[in-house]
């Protein structure tokens, strides 16, 4: 039973992103800024750091593929970038101490990497014609602020739950 909880939780976050955009869209869209929730990536990165590297990258790949199929209909971008970022974060965490604040800041770096990667790929694929300066000011900075707020809210409970989860994995 407990094993099922983690996939269900991640799936809930996956749907929460779409719900968030749907429900708060009037407030979010009527300004010039584009604010994108990356709650799923934050959770996946915390899972990678505290719950275990293999688990994290596996979940990143599965949910990246799900994200591509369900939301963007361009398969490959998130399927590739989610695990890659999870891998880099897990590597970085071997170098520095995995204190909560450090992990939160690293997941912000992860979000920057993801946004940059997706922007560059979409620019190549001609999905967007946004200029880099506009991208930075109207999209990246507001997105970071929203996700930082989310990270601060959930970081402590997430760490506790994933620590427990890792403990259980070790005991098995």
């Amino acid at each position: 039973m407990k094993k099922l909880l983690l996939p269900i939780f991640v799936l809930f976050i996956f749907i929460l992103e779409s719900l968030f955009v749907e429900l708060f869209s009037p407030q979010l869209f009527n300004s010039d800024r584009i604010i994108v929730p990356h709650f799923l990536l934050v959770v996946l990165l915390f899972l990678t750091v505290y719950g275990g590297k293999k688990q994290g990258i596996l979940y990143a790949a599965i949910f990246g593929l799900l994200f591509d199929i369900v939301y963007t209909e361009v398969i490959g971008i998130y399927f590739f970038l989610y695990p890659l970022i999870a891998y880099f974060v897990s590597k970085t965490m071997q170098l520095i101490h995995n204190h909560l604040v450090v992990v939160s800041l690293t997941s912000m770096v992860g979000i920057i990497l993801l946004e940059l990667g997706v922007y560059e790929l979409n620019f190549l694929l001609k999905v967007t014609e946004m200029e880099f300066q506009t991208f930075l000011q109207e999209r990246l900075y507001p997105t970071l602020i929203l996700n930082l707020a989310f990270t601060i809210l959930v970081s402590f409970p997430l760490k506790r739950q994933f620590d427990k989860y890792a403990e259980e994995l070790r005991n098995e």
Partner: peptide, 15 residues
């Protein structure tokens, strides 16, 4: 009924 919206907002898609 709209049940979802693409959160990444490069592609404007609804489900």
């Amino acid at each position: 009924i709209v049940i979802g919206r693409n959160p990444e907002r490069w592609h404007e898609l609804l489900v």
